[in-house]
Nucleic acid binder design. Sequence first.
DNA 1: TTGTAAGCGTTATCAA
DNA 2: TTGATAACGCTTACAA
Lengths: 337, 337
Amino acid sequence: MVVTKMTIKDIAKKAEVSTASVSRVINNAPNVSEELRKKVMSLIDEVGYKPNSIGKQLRTSKSEKILVVLPTLSNPFYATIIKGIEEECSELNYGVLIAVINLNNELERKYIELLTTKQVDGIISFFSTLAPDEINKMAEAFPYVQCCEPTENTSTSSVSINNKKAAYDAVSYLTSCGHKRIGMISGYYFKTSEREREAGFKEALEKADIAFSEELIVKSDYDYEGGQKACKKLFDLENPPTAIFAVSDTIAIGAMKYLSTINKIVGKDVDIVGFDNATVSKMSSPTVSTVSQPRLELGQTAVSLLMDKIHNSSSINKSVVLPHKLIFRESTGIKFK
Amino acid sequence: MVVTKMTIKDIAKKAEVSTASVSRVINNAPNVSEELRKKVMSLIDEVGYKPNSIGKQLRTSKSEKILVVLPTLSNPFYATIIKGIEEECSELNYGVLIAVINLNNELERKYIELLTTKQVDGIISFFSTLAPDEINKMAEAFPYVQCCEPTENTSTSSVSINNKKAAYDAVSYLTSCGHKRIGMISGYYFKTSEREREAGFKEALEKADIAFSEELIVKSDYDYEGGQKACKKLFDLENPPTAIFAVSDTIAIGAMKYLSTINKIVGKDVDIVGFDNATVSKMSSPTVSTVSQPRLELGQTAVSLLMDKIHNSSSINKSVVLPHKLIFRESTGIKFK
DNA sequence: TTGTAAGCGTTATCAA
DNA sequence: TTGATAACGCTTACAA
């Protein structure tokens, strides 16, 4: 961590060459003599000179950094995806910066300005508060890809699982176990995935010839308390469900907590499936059956989509769908222990 | 989200004024006529001009952004602290960027370059892989503060709780309950806090006239599996403990899991105290008694320390210690349910 | 109050 | 292969 205020000019002066030559050495330009290269490089090493990247950015309009826009930091779900992003970017020598917008539209715009003012070369967004046509317009002019949760009616490159199919699979498993009355705990936050998962839920019921009624879908916050409350609503029904499909593992664990207070045994009296294969889903007791998303690959794919945009501005929009996986644990019957 | 490639020159030309005047308007300089201001502002609004902040940064060496350096994203402990940072920065009109270094020294250096090259005005670091004198040297030249986990033998501004006292309090509570044989599950990751907590642990034993032996401190990864393994080690001892102090709630929950497999009832046969008051500590069953850190205030304080450095380069280094709090839950006896 | 022009640290064009 | 110099977009003395 040598700290110098040296500029390319200082190096040039010391080496008795032009700044242009120093620049060529730094950037591994083809046409520099071995002699010059050695002289300049040894000097650079000696004084610990680091090119000022603001100057470079101003000149080249490239930052070799991308920005990851997150709705919140409190959901550990993102950690692994971002690890995938980091790994991929690290190989490409891109830096990864993260911004948290907390559902704040103004804040989101502020961070997006990092893109429009060329401070980052691209954005991977996990959630946007912008209107669809704003997103479309921006994505036309700048490298912007959506990950996991593309805003409805937008056309940018994106990567996610098939949320409808994932819900369909989870609920179909429940019907195949003989459940005739299944509740769903959904949310009112991530609009797209929730709508799709609700659609998958309904389709699975239909397929199993089970009547659907609105009371079976309860909306919840994405937390432990939310899961408890939502579950109570379901079990305050005249005809309560015998199984629950929840859109997050934390919600599922909250639901399990409520069930324990009314002496229902999860995995026996009531089967539960969560979503995301969060760390906590293996820590609770009983452990939670869940739908797993390929997080590392989600991140890696997002990066390659973004790089495509960065290096080829006319690149066409691609929507990549990655496979999900059902994971069976104790919350859906002891046979899966 | 209007997207223009306009520069200050274009605006100046359109408005038939100098670029200096436009600059003054943008920056709310005192000496501009109302007439000029109106003319320029309306034009700016009309065409949606946004000043290019790279140009501005190059000229002013200020970015109005800070960087938060995190060891990992998978620990939700940071989420609330960062919320405190965001809130504070938002008021000051500073942007907050986050970088994750995953214990990778090279990566950390890369992100620190954002500071040394003036792309961010300061850094709040939650963990560093750098050598103490490197940190000191950097912190002398640039605004850099450490939060929660200052590297030992460094002298930068920092904010944290008193980890030794926190451990002392937690373990003293355990001894006050009558425990004579207490185990500690520590880690080998965050060197500073672990060492301090171990010191607090020993001191509490000493104070209660309980002999200490090395076998009572077991090292663990900061996860569920680590907690299980560490707990097994403790209970494979000839003389196993009747209480455990763990340096994280996740470890504590892992320990509880192991205890359930050997038919020990937590809160009755064995008392357990965790650390951090993580979300999961309220979700497990039994719930986990823990040491709570004032996360929001930790973040806010870090920001004010940093702003002090940013706006007053000769500002003296301050070490702020914030109060911790013991939280009693089911894992230390049902009387605290 | 406004304009002129230098300069922040680079890279890239052109000429040598 | 190397050097001189303009340019990137902005702010800020200094002059008017």
